[in-house]
Design a protein around this nucleic acid. Structure first.
Length: 408
RNA sequence: GGGGGAAUACCAGAGCGGCCAAAUGGGCCAGACUGUAAAUCUGGUGGCUUAGCCUUCGCAGGUUCGAAUCCUGCUUCCCCCA
C-alpha cells in the first residue's frame, strides 16, 4: 500500500523549483491530483545515452528533480539509451556526430553511469530499462510502421534539422530516427512525466503524439534550464572544461566553486540545493565570498558529508584564502649530481623540478616575476640567479604551482 | 563517376617570394587590482648554451640567392554536379 501523497500544492512547490518550462503547463497539477486520488504514483522518465559520461553538476539538475519526485512517492524510470546512443542525439548539433559506439562500449558506459547516478537518485526504488530491450526486438516492418507516424515536415520543425537542411548540410537518416526512438521509449514505459533540457521539447511532444496514437495517457515534459559552467557563460560541459564533476575530490570541488562568477550563484542555489529561495536571497545579500562558501559546502555535502565539506572549505581558506602555506606541498626529488656546487641557475632549477616544461618557459616566468623561493617567497630576480639548494627548499612557479625539494 | 576547394602554432583564422617564429581573436600562463572570484588592465604564449642560434606553416621532392608563400607527386578533409 503506497504511502499517502502530499497535498498537490506542496508537491508543486517542490517540483516546479528551478524548472524552466512545463508542457502543457497546467497538466502537472492535474496529474498530481489524479495520482493522489487513486494512490498511483506518477511514472517519471529520464533518458540518458551512455556515451561515456563523467556526471557533473549540470547533469544533476534533472537527476535531482527525479529524486524530488521519488521523495514525494513517485516512480523514477531511468532509460539507458543503449540503442539511441548508437545513433547520437542530434539536439543542438550543427553537425552529424562522427563516431558511433559499439554495443560493448555502450554497456560499459551504462554501468559506470548508473553508479554515478546512484549518488543522486535512489536506485533501490528506481526502474531501469535499456531501450535496446524493445528496439532490439523490433522487426524492420515495425520500424517502418513507426516511421510512418512521423513526417519529414514534422522533423523539420526542429530548429537543428531545419538549419542544417537550409544550409544544405548532411542530415543522416538514422539521425532522423533519434527523436522517434526517444519518443517511443515513452510509449514503452508509459511515462507520465519526462524530464530533460529545453532542447528536448520536440521529442517530448512527439512522445505525446505517439502515446495518444497508442491510446495511452500523454506525458508532460518538464524542462530544466541549462546550468552554466565555471565561466558563467556557456553551458557546463566536459568538452568546454568548465565543469565540476560529482566524483571529484571535495577540495577540488571547493576550488572550482570559489572560481564561479558571483552572478551565477543564485542559479546554482536554485538548481543544486534545497535552500529555500527566501533564504537564498538573504545569503546573497551578505558577503559574496561567504555566500559562495556556503553554496559550495551545501553541494559538496550532498556528495560527501558535512564534515568533509567543512574540511574542504577550511583548507581552501587556509591555503588560498589566507596567507598560510599549502597543506600538502608535493615533494620533488633532486640528486646532488644535478647541482653545480650545491646550486643551480634559477631557470634550470625550475625545469629540473618539472615546474616548467622548458627553459624558455622558466625564463618567461622569471622575467614576469612569477617565480619565488623559500618560506618568505623571495622573488627570483633573474634567470641566471644561482639558487642554493637544500633539502626542504620551497619553490613557487606562479601562485598555483609549487613544490618542496627533496635532495637525494 | 565527374568537377571544385582546403590543409598554418592549443583552437579559430590572416599571410600568398624576402621586413614571418608567422597578424588578429579565443584559450592558456604570469603580473597588477581584488574577496586567491568574475570583470578590467599589462605582459607572455616553438626550442636552445638567448644582444645570437636552431627547428616549425599536411607529407616528400623541386625551382630560387631566398619559399608558409611558386612547381610536381602523395595523403587527408570538405563541397558541388550526376
Amino acid at each position: 500500500m503506497p504511502a499517502a501523497f502530499a497535498a498537490v500544492e506542496d508537491q508543486l512547490r517542490v517540483l516546479t523549483r528551478g524548472v524552466e518550462k512545463i508542457v502543457p503547463g497546467d497538466e502537472l497539477a492535474r496529474k498530481l491530483q489524479h495520482s493522489r486520488d487513486t494512490g498511483i504514483p506518477l511514472r517519471v522518465k529520464y533518458g540518458i545515452d551512455p556515451t561515456g559520461i563523467d556526471v557533473h553538476l549540470g547533469h544533476t539538475v534533472p537527476l535531482r528533480k527525479i529524486r524530488q519526485f521519488q521523495d514525494l512517492g513517485h516512480q523514477a524510470v531511468i532509460i539507458i539509451g543503449n540503442y539511441t546512443a548508437m545513433v547520437g542525439d542530434p539536439s543542438g548539433r550543427d553537425e552529424a556526430r562522427s563516431k558511433r559506439l559499439t554495443e560493448a562500449e555502450v554497456e560499459a558506459n551504462a554501468r559506470n553511469y548508473l553508479e554515478q547516478v546512484g549518488k543522486v537518485v535512489d536506485m533501490s526504488r528506481a526502474e531501469v530499462h535499456r531501450n535496446g530491450d524493445w528496439f532490439g526486438r523490433m522487426s524492420f516492418a515495425e520500424v517502418l510502421n513507426l516511421c510512418g507516424r512521423v513526417t519529414v515536415a514534422q522533423l523539420l520543425t526542429r530548429e537543428d534539422f531545419a538549419k542544417r537542411y537550409r544550409e544544405e548540410r548532411p542530415i543522416f537518416l538514422h539521425e532522423c530516427l533519434y527523436p522517434v526512438m526517444q519518443a517511443w521509449d515513452s510509449v514503452e514505459i508509459r511515462s507520465d512525466v519526462e524530464l530533460g533540457g529545453t532542447e528536448q521539447l520536440y521529442s517530448f511532444m512527439l512522445a505525446r503524439d505517439l502515446q495518444a496514437q497508442q491510446g495511452l495517457n500523454q506525458q508532460i515534459g518538464m524542462m530544466s534550464p541549462i546550468l552554466v559552467g565555471l565561466d558563467g557563460i556557456r553551458r557546463m560541459g566536459k568538452s568546454l572544461g568548465n565543469y565540476i564533476g560529482i566524483s571529484e575530490h571535495p577540495y577540488e570541488m571547493m576550488k572550482k566553486f570559489m572560481q564561479l562568477p558571483d552572478n551565477v550563484m543564485k542559479m546554482y542555489f536554485e538548481l543544486l540545493t534545497e535552500v529555500p529561495l527566501e533564504q537564498v536571497d538573504q545569503i546573497l545579500a551578505g558577503h559574496p565570498k561567504e555566500a559562495k562558501v556556503s553554496l559550495a559546502k551545501n553541494v559538496i555535502a550532498q556528495y560527501y558529508d558535512a564534515a568533509q565539506a567543512d574540511e574542504a572549505a577550511a583548507r581552501w581558506q587556509g591555503e588560498i584564502g589566507g596567507g598560510s602555506l599549502p597543506a600538502d606541498i608535493p615533494d620533488v626529488s633532486l640528486r646532488h649530481d644535478q647541482l653545480q656546487d650545491g646550486a643551480l641557475p634559477a631557470f634550470r632549477l625550475l625545469t629540473e623540478l618539472s615546474l616548467c616544461a622548458s627553459g624558455s618557459e622558466a625564463r618567461r616566468l622569471i622575467a614576469q616575476g612569477g617565480a619565488k623561493f623559500g618560506p618568505e617567497k623571495t622573488p627570483i630576480e633573474s634567470q641566471d640567479q644561482l639558487i642554493l639548494v637544500h633539502d626542504g627548499l620551497l619553490i613557487w612557479a606562479g601562485k598555483k604551482k609549487y613544490c618542496r625539494v627533496r635532495l637525494g
